[in-house]
Design a protein around this nucleic acid. Structure first.
Lengths: 196, 196
DNA sequence: TCCGTGATGACACTGTGTGTCATCACGGAC
DNA sequence: GTCCGTGATGACACACAGTGTCATCACGGA
């Protein structure tokens, strides 16, 4: 079992999630996680750069995937439409690959630790940066690209959270619902005519 | 000079900023900062909870101030208008109290460290949470409140960065410009009629 | 003058994250 | 079948963040 162990990383993630849920994130040491996974503390840091990252395994691929999806959208589509099109095509596929149970357990741990929420925001920022870059490559002017990317990242986060909390609505539907809400708030929101 | 030293906290912040700029955030230890400020490593942690927070001194008051400003806005105003009104009244006052030089130096340090960017996003999230809470107290429905708060937080961040990079435009003007951009992107952005 | 209070220094300790080296299993070369 | 390169791991050792605890010292008031 010691040598040739392709499941070591997965064992670390499950061990970490279990221990975090059982004793609380701050009361679990890296040595605890490694021990339950049958590894050494030093080896933990060969799979993950730090104690927080173990909860976000795989998330490093999302920015690149989203970037490609946006670049693959209709070149004539306006920025937000391109992002939404990319989310429509990837959203269900991504959410289905995760599983509600695992997501819910992760959610509970993250919501209990400021440190983990900080890291989660970093992941969201990485998504935003990827969208930003993809939009610029499509020719969107930089200011609009950055803004649309950040707002889309907020909407994605909101929709994802709604999906994870109640499994009845699809991620894509939630995303469009969030944007409808935003549209309404923006339309009557600043006391100035919509077409200034 | 040792006893009765009201300027200890400020000495720590300036020492930290100087050292971070001179040697890079990661190459500066808390002991270095404390020494330059004429204090002990242990005393540093009596003024700041950690090494990052020293760059954000005073920011803990912003959420409460914004909250009060939103609650003080016209009760009949729609959510986003209330937030913008609050920002209009506070924005210039806040930016003037900071000073371009200090903000620019801080910006350079933060942009050079992922750890500090993470903390900055946490500060932004605190602003968003305060806006969210204030809007709910005004009677805004929770979904709209959270969304408007997060989007406003993004807009504030964008406007603040623009202001800090070029001193020619006011913070308030930048904020409205950002929202105009967003309005335009949202209007033609999803390929669906604005009034679905 | 004495004492309570609050800020500080000194010290010890846990835990994260990193560098370095020895070791061991595996697969391929011969 | 034996030998060797490679890669993953364990075993230290270390710097540093952050925390608890206690002694000390200056200050202001009784």
């Amino acid at each position: 079992m010691a040598r040739w162990d392709p499941g070591a990383q997965e064992r670390l993630t499950t061990a970490a999630l279990d221990l975090y849920l059982e004793h609380g994130y701050e009361n679990v040491t890296v040595a605890d996680i490694a021990e339950r996974a049958g590894l050494t503390r030093r080896s933990f840091f060969r799979y993950f750069p730090d104690k927080r990252e173990v909860l976000f395994a795989g998330s490093e691929r999302l920015p690149a995937v989203l970037r490609e999806a946006v670049l693959g959208a209709d070149p004539a589509a306006p920025p937000l439409a391109a992002v939404l099109d990319a989310c429509d095509r990837l959203g269900t596929q991504l959410t289905e690959a995760l599983g509600h149970d695992h997501v819910a357990r992760r959610r509970a741990v993250i919501d209990s630790s400021a440190e983990l929420q900080e890291r989660e925001r970093t992941k969201s920022a990485a998504v935003s940066a990827a969208l930003d870059e993809a939009l610029r490559e499509r020719g969107t002017d930089p200011a609009t690209a950055t803004l649309v990317a950040q707002v889309a990242s907020v909407a994605i986060g909101q929709a994802f959270r709604r999906w994870s909390e109640s499994a009845d609505a699809s991620f894509t539907d939630g995303l469009h619902a969030v944007l409808d809400t935003l549209r309404a708030a923006l339309a009557d929101g600043d006391g100035r005519p919509p077409r200034a």
